[in-house]
Design a protein around this nucleic acid. Structure first.
Lengths: 342, 342
DNA sequence: TTGAAAGCGATACCAA
DNA sequence: TTGGTATCGCTTTCAA
């Protein structure tokens, strides 16, 4: 049973002052100890640390942010998901990965939604007043937000590169072209020749690059690369795209999808059309989300290193926050995971 | 092309002082206008508002938090997902919903991961120093964190109720018992009699309540309710559970799963066993995640009102922040969505 | 109704 | 190495 004052907070949290008093030193000294400053006598440091422990002191974030110049929080700005609930599982992994990567550096992870109909300048101004840096995922090529954010003085790191680099914006992408090429070559090596592509939204590099990888492989093999339909990353669009592909090319024997979720939609359409996977038609996805190994049949796919990508994004961000001014563009390798759908 | 100083921030953001100067009033007046205080002469208010607009002034979050006593940020604490990347899509929806619901009230949405091996007291102390209230999702029955958080003086609202109510903790749950009962009755009404249940982790109300709903319906119909296997919410566990169910009851003709993700794993196992859905075996899920309508066949499921639940959680939290001290327990209705798997 | 000024809790500069 | 103190930007009495 817990007794608790009516107020918003139970008792008041210990402050630097409290700790200083208890340890018999000044606030400045406590601050130094807490911040790992070297020049503090050993016995004082010990005393302070004990006091901190006994009081359960945790520096007040707001005060620290106000007084200091050290960055203390990072925002992840997501363009609102197309439909409510339609968050691609790969994005969820990124959110978790980013959050985890921020624990070490002790930065606060703030999540903001920025619907595309919201004024970019307003978003930037808001972000500027609330956080020290910005992480961006699922950005479109023509999105002005990264530039506006950077112009507002915020370091920004995007997951996935932009069509044209923007000053002040770094990116950590994966090898989308290579991944899609790998996936396509895999199908070709299995003897498939009538291969279609369900591309993700082409106004983002992840969509267009994967399509490009598909085209490259098909051309290199001297196969027709005209079977491309654009989707919008949803299962719904994957299903519609596969149906369309099947209609325009009844002899289709392979599909390269721009994401696992779209591939799952395709699987559904294929089965509805009475075709078997992989006997009649092989399917390859992209992402390797958790569910990919539990579809029927389990999905061959291109694995993206979500946790690693998240970590690198944070690394880049920290470097920038540490005074680094150069924009970085990192590309991470991907790997083909062969399962039963191909 | 954007020019930009080397420093962490481009120029310095306008402050109350700047605005006051420009509008020819005092900081206090600007503060009043910005905070919607009534007692300000109309012409001054207009002048201030214009200055605010021209300068693009946004109050500094840290300063406001430090000076005022108004709550300004809320944390969502998630128990780390079992496996990396294995974030249940339903949770993702909740994250988006919560984030959106927090925009109106102008509260910051901070996401924190709290692995179960992390010291609860440390998490609470950290949270206490960083945010004004806490949202909790996917909490286990024996989890001490809600209590510790509440004892630390933080208002906490959980998505999903706890086994035993904790002082200072409110909850917004859905009718899990009713939902599972509905799903089971639906199967029974379709003539199924050998029905198995793939329960979610039983150490959480969402898991045990859904199982209870299943048992209730089976008992009411005078059917055997002994076919229950516990999963852990993952597709993997759903697959394993379905396989086990099929082994122990070859004549199984229906499965009620505790979540769509587990149902998807079950679909896979069923097909692997050479049985057809829904001809041989009907399957019902729970949640109605986006992918549920794109499995093969599309999944009959119990729809949880994710956006609504998120909104109610925020409502309850705001009431508590506004001085309300009573703990609330809300239960939201669910609805059966019939698709082709049953 | 308005303004002046005292904090909020930490940081960091300047002396000692 | 230590401590005193100005300062960060805003809210909120307290007087005027």
């Amino acid at each position: 049973m817990v007794t608790q004052p009516a107020g918003r907070r139970a008792g008041s949290a210990p402050t630097l002052e409290t700790v200083a008093h208890r340890a018999g030193v000044s606030r400045a000294t406590v601050s130094r100890v807490v911040n790992g400053d070297d020049r503090v006598a050993e016995h004082l440091r010990a005393a302070v640390e004990r006091a901190v422990g006994e009081l359960g002191f945790v520096p007040n974030r707001a005060a620290r942010a106000l007084a200091g110049r050290t960055p203390d929080s990072v925002a992840l700005i997501m363009r609102e998901p197309a439909a409510f609930g339609a968050v691609d599982p790969y994005l969820s992994s990124m959110v978790v990965g980013l959050s985890n990567a921020l624990v070490g550096p002790g930065l606060q992870f703030v999540v903001m939604m920025a619907p595309k109909d919201r004024d970019d300048a307003a978003v930037a101004s808001y972000a500027r007043a609330h956080v020290d840096a910005v992480l961006l995922i699922s950005v479109h090529d023509d999105d002005a937000l990264p530039g506006v954010l950077a112009a507002a003085g915020l370091p920004v790191v995007t997951g996935g590169r932009l069509r044209v680099p923007v000053v002040g914006v770094s990116s950590v992408d994966v090898d989308n072209v290579g991944g899609a090429r790998l996936a396509t070559e895999h199908l070709i090596s299995r003897g498939r020749t009538r291969i279609g592509c369900i591309a993700g939204a082409l106004d983002a590099r992840s969509g267009s690059d994967r399509k490009a990888g598909f085209l490259l492989a098909m051309q290199a093999a001297g196969l027709s690369d005209s079977l491309v339909v654009e989707g919008d990353w949803t299962a719904q669009s994957g299903q519609a795209a596969a149906a369309q592909l099947l209609r325009s090319a009844p002899d289709l024997d392979g599909i390269v999808a721009g994401s696992d979720v779209m591939a799952m939609g395709a699987l559904h359409a294929i089965r509805a059309a009475g075709r078997r996977v992989p006997e009649d038609l092989a399917v390859v996805g992209f992402d390797d989300i958790d569910l990919a190994s539990h579809t029927s049949p389990p999905l061959t796919t291109v694995r993206q290193p979500a946790a690693h990508q998240a970590q690198r994004m944070i690394d880049v961000l920290l470097a920038r926050l540490d005074g680094g001014v150069e924009d970085t563009e990192i590309e991470l390798p991907v790997e083909l995971v062969i399962r039963e759908s191909s």
